[in-house]
C-alpha cells in the first residue's frame, strides 16, 4: 500500500504537487518527475475516497486559533473545545467531516519531539512554516494553514522542526473503537 494524494473536494489549495511532494533520491530528496507525480496524485478529487486528502483552513479560522492560544496564555480562558467544534463544523460543511467520537489535540513539536500518528485522522499545520510529513521514500510539505486527512493504515512521521523552531499542529485523532 502506498500513499496517494488529492486535494479534497470543495477545497482550493494554491500551489502545485511538484512544490509539495518530495521523493527520495539517493541520500536526499527531490521533486518528483512527471511519471512519479502521475503515480502519486489523483487528478479527480474524490475518485479514491481513502487517499490522503489535502485541505486548507480559512484565514479567519487560523486567526481565531492564534487568538485562542493568546487568550489561554494571557488569561487562561482560551476555549480549545469550542475552537475544535467550530473546526469540525467547517470540515463538515466542506463534506470532510471528522469521524464520530474523534478528538482534537494541540501539538507543539520541538526539534527533539516525536508525534504519535498511529491514530491520527488528520493533521493541520497552524504554524508559520511548512511541516514535513514523511512516508517511506516520500515526503509531503504541509504549508501554513494546510491540513492532510490521512489514509487509514498509512500514518506518516512528522519531521521535527529545525533548531529553535516549533511545529504547531492540530491533530484530529480517531476516537476509541
Amino acid at each position: 500500500m502506498k500513499a496517494l494524494f488529492a486535494v479534497a473536494p470543495n477545497f482550493h489549495c494554491s500551489g502545485s504537487w511538484k512544490d509539495r511532494l518530495l521523493v527520495a533520491e539517493g541520500s536526499g530528496w527531490c521533486a518528483p518527475h512527471d511519471d512519479e507525480l502521475a503515480s502519486l496524485t489523483l487528478t479527480k478529487p474524490g475518485s479514491d475516497p481513502a487517499c490522503c486528502c489535502l485541505f486548507s483552513v480559512p484565514a479567519h479560522m487560523r486567526n481565531r486559533f492564534w487568538a485562542m492560544l493568546n487568550e489561554e496564555a494571557a488569561e487562561g480562558t482560551g476555549d480549545f473545545d469550542k475552537f475544535s467544534e467550530d473546526l469540525a463544523n467547517f470540515l463538515t460543511f466542506k463534506e470532510l467531516p471528522p469521524p464520530k467520537d474523534s478528538v482534537s489535540e494541540l501539538l507543539i513539536q520541538s526539534p527533539d519531539g516525536k508525534v504519535e500518528t498511529g491514530d491520527v485522522w488528520a493533521l493541520i499545520n497552524f504554524g508559520e512554516e511548512p511541516v514535513l510529513l514523511t512516508w517511506p521514500q516520500l515526503q509531503l510539505r504541509l504549508g501554513p494553514a494546510e491540513g492532510c486527512r490521512m489514509t487509514v493504515g498509512l500514518p506518516p512521521n512528522v519531521v521535527p522542526p529545525p533548531k529553535d523552531e516549533l511545529n504547531v499542529l492540530l491533530a484530529i485523532r480517531l476516537g476509541p473503537a
Binding site: 470543495n10 482550493h12 480559512p58 484565514a59 479567519h60 460543511f93
Partner: peptide, 13 residues
C-alpha cells in the same frame, strides 16, 4: 457555494 469561508476571508483581506 462551496466556498463561503474563502469568500469571507477575501472580503476581510
Amino acid at each position: 457555494l462551496d466556498y463561503p469561508d474563502e469568500l469571507f476571508d477575501f472580503y476581510i483581506e
